[in-house]
Design a binder for these strands. Structure first.
Length: 410
RNA sequence: GCGGUCUUAGCUCAGUCGGUAGAGCACCAGAUUGUGGCUCUGGGUGUCACGGGUUCAAAUCCCGUAGAUCGCCCCA
């Protein structure tokens, strides 16, 4: 048997309604905030991500699906949206200077990782980006949008973890202090963290190694290293969240894995997910545009993992029942009547009624059984006796009542 | 990339000491010469994940591979 690629999943007809539900909610909520959808190619030149996401990140280092195409170019299946979106925005001059651009997206992404529950090699994300504002109002708007989306889906028992990395000055100042501290304790750090100390010292704060954590717990705090601008920015974001009654938890060790963040970073966590408890995250990325060759443009955004959202919705029983498959099922006693059945079906469909006819030449009983099993509210029965009067039987399946009705009056 | 557990019917699973498979649900047909649900009767629909080895004989023991899952790592 040929199997699907490891870490990929078929979305089968019995769960497709779950996806429609999440997608429709994403579209609806995005539109409520004035966001417009953007769709970009599934693959990009590799440099979009190596320059955008950051050479030292694990995503770029070991998780990308990269190949050389027949023309000799290095191509990568997108592992995330933000860098690709920024590339598209720069290329198409979507953003005019100082004109706000509110964009959302929904689609597949690819990372070569060890698959696990809630972690696939092809997975889907819903996300939104607010481009052109350096102000904390746009950070708050993005978080508000994410929170509203969760609320619309009925997810309310999640945690919003928030932190700030500060502006360039604060960040490099903090990095210097942190490297000093960690270097002093270098001998006790795990091998992993020693490497990170060179490549990306902030990430050491993420370590789950027990001894690392002890060292980290005494490490200098970024919140103490913020300059006035960075501090103000963060406080104003929190102020709006407070006013909106959006609960959050500050965690000064939250740094997130992508290189392009500055100022606000946040993560959404739900405890039903096990080891992969994060189902969404985002932050501000003021330097990404220039890194990808565009004009300096401030922006902030988030992404959510759709598969993880679905796991949460299942665990809290918030997946709505799908609508009925059809309004009418046309049963015919004899395959000679199939042309009449098709004609009636056409008429009903033209009126927007979902209609099914048997195509297996099965007995009336089997057809009725199927209509019952599918929960179809009305059955039209075509049979000899009524047909003499140019009529059919209309049966109400919920109470079993039936009436004879002329075909022309259907 | 590392470690643990697992893989038998469409689904959930049983299968003893090694003797080429079974239950419930689902599905199909009939009881019902023109009608679903309830009931009864009948039907097993299978590459025992895949490939090799041991054996007279393997779902069962051994090795390898693939996939799933849990943890590490990473992230959505």
């Amino acid at each position: 048997m040929i199997q699907a690629i490891r870490g990929t999943k078929d979305i089968l007809p019995d769960t497709i309604s779950h996806w429609y539900y999440v997608e429709e909610t994403a579209r609806k909520v995005s539109e409520l905030f004035g966001y417009k959808e953007i769709r970009t190619p599934i693959f990009e030149k590799t440099e979009v991500f190596s320059r955008g996401v950051g050479e030292q990140t694990d995503i770029v280092n070991k998780e990308m699906y990269t190949f050389t195409d027949r023309g000799g170019d290095s191509i990568t299946l997108r592992p995330e949206m933000t860098a690709a979106l920024v590339r598209a925005v720069i290329q198409n001059s979507v953003v005019q200077q100082q004109v706000i651009s509110r964009l959302w997206y929904f689609g597949p992404f690819f990372r070569y990782e060890r698959p696990q529950k809630g972690r696939l090699r092809q997975f889907h994300q819903f996300g939104a980006e607010c481009i052109s504002s350096p102000y904390p109002e746009s950070d708050a708007e993005i978080i508000h949008l994410a929170a509203t989306f969760c609320k619309s889906l009925g997810i309310d028992d999640y945690q919003l973890i928030i932190n700030t990395l500060g502006n360039e000055n604060s960040r490099s100042e903090y990095r210097r202090i942190l490297v000093d501290y960690l270097s002093a304790n270098k001998s006790q750090l795990s091998a992993e963290s020693k490497n990170r100390l060179e490549a990306n010292p902030l990430r050491v704060l993420d370590s789950k190694d027990e001894q690392d954590r002890e060292i980290i717990s005494n490490a200098p705090n970024i919140l103490d290293c913020l300059d006035e601008e960075s501090h103000q920015h963060f406080q104003q974001v929190l102020g709006i969240l407070d006013y909106l009654n959006i609960p959050y938890k500050i965690n000064s060790r939250l740094v997130r894995g992508l290189d392009y963040y500055s100022h606000t970073v946040f993560e959404l966590q739900h405890n039903s997910l096990g080891a992969q408890d994060s189902f969404g995250g985002g932050g501000r990325y003021n330097s990404l545009f220039s890194q990808l060759g565009g004009k300096d443009t401030p922006a902030v955004g988030f992404a959510m993992g759709v598969e993880r959202l679905l796991l949460i919705l299942e665990s809290i029983n918030k997946i709505p029942v799908p609508s009925i498959l059809a309004d009418y099922y046309i049963v015919f006693a004899n395959s000679d009547y199939s042309n009449i059945a098709f004609k009636i079906a056409e008429k009903l469909r033209m009126r927007g009624k979902k209609t099914i006819c048997d195509v297996q030449r099965r007995s009336m009983k089997a057809q009725m059984r199927e209509a019952g099993k599918l929960n179809i509210p009305f059955v039209i029965i075509i049979a000899e006796e009524e047909l003499k009067q140019n009529s059919v039987v209309l049966k109400n399946m919920s109470d079993g009542s039936q009436q004879i009705i002329e075909i022309d009056e259907l």
